[in-house]
């Protein structure tokens, strides 16, 4: 068994003259959870459309276990499970009917299908609801069935798009356990999420997309470590002064700056020099500082550093 389960090389995709993917490359290993972060328009959806076989790239290659997916699309589709962000289930059918149907379209039949459906219903903790219609379930329950429907044919790679968006903590925790169990079973998972704690908790490795490229990759720890020299300071003023703000922006040590009402969030590679300079400037401008805070680098900070945007923007 080779190391790479999925290998994506130099993907290029252009829509109406707009280059959405710009030579994007990454790999997915066996038994790995790969977290993918990226602002809107970074190319995540296009990449997943290509990786799921819905869309063809203009250039580049997608290989699964060493073969090109475009030349063995049917075989490839049987090997992957896709969990869409929307609840893509038949609302007028029960949980059991939905899972049975999706099993059948993947060629799972008879006793094997029945056993798999029962196993999945148990794993998503919905045994007592197996004959309930999807329309009667809560949002969290629907999300769990949505995931189960992608696992019915025992895929090697599962692609999940925001699998826990808008659900209760209990369902979220159940889904996290389910994802971790998939890795234990030797499956690989690609997961996109706007919840940074979800990516930090689940991912073995993280990719950050921006402008159609992978701008950062590695484990959560390595990404934070590589970027821990970017300190984040939060300076809160009683009343911010536009002239002061302009002078702070011009400081050499300031890498990025975000302003929220009277609060200024600054990243800098210099330890305390930037704070010294801000104190000097505020004193000159006679603007009072309410509070100064130092924040430990998080994955969200790394994301912001590479994309210039916060998660969810």
């Amino acid at each position: 068994m080779g190391k790479d389960l999925l290998s994506i090389k130099n993907l290029v995709k252009t829509f109406q003259g707009n280059k959405v993917l710009n030579g994007l490359s990454f790999k997915v290993n066996h038994s790995e959870i790969l977290g993918v972060l990226g602002p809107n328009g970074a190319g995540k959806s296009t990449t997943f459309s290509i990786v799921t076989g819905l869309l063809r790239s203009d250039r580049g290659q997608v290989e699964f276990e060493g073969y090109s997916i475009s030349s063995h699309l049917k075989k490839y589709k049987k090997s992957i499970g896709v969990v869409p962000q929307e609840i893509s289930l038949y609302t007028n059918m029960t949980i059991y009917e939905n899972l049975t149907f999706f099993g059948k379209i993947y060629g799972v039949r008879g006793k094997q299908l029945k056993e798999k459906v029962d196993e999945l219903i148990e794993s998503i903790h919905l045994i007592d609801k197996r004959n309930s219609y999807i329309g009667q379930l809560s949002g969290g329950m629907k999300r769990r069935v949505n995931i189960a429907a992608a696992l019915i044919h025992d895929p090697k790679l599962i692609i999940m798009d925001e699998p826990t968006v808008g659900i209760d903590p209990q369902s979220r925790s159940l889904i996290w356990d389910l994802i971790l169990r998939l890795r234990e079973e030797g499956k690989s998972v690609i997961i996109t999420s706007h919840y940074v704690d979800e990516i930090e908790r689940l991912s073995d490795r993280v990719l950050i997309f921006n402008n159609g490229e992978v701008v950062a990759k590695g484990t959560v720890d390595s990404l934070i470590h590589e970027n821990c020299n970017h300190k984040k300071y939060i300076v809160e003023f009683y009343e911010i002064d536009q002239q002061l703000l302009n002078r702070i922006k011009q400081l050499e040590d300031v890498e990025t700056i975000e302003v929220e009402e009277n609060m200024v969030k600054i990243t800098s590679t210099e330890d305390n020099k930037v704070i010294e300079n801000i104190l000097k400037l505020s004193s000159q401008q006679k603007v009072e500082i309410k509070n100064i805070d130092f924040k430990k680098t998080s994955l969200e900070d790394v994301f912001f550093y590479y994309t210039g945007r916060g998660l969810g923007n």
Partner: peptide
């Protein structure tokens, strides 16, 4: 609209 068509298209059918 419900996304089930996407699921069908993603399947090997």
């Amino acid at each position: 609209i419900t996304g089930t068509m996407s699921r069908l298209v993603l399947s090997p059918i």
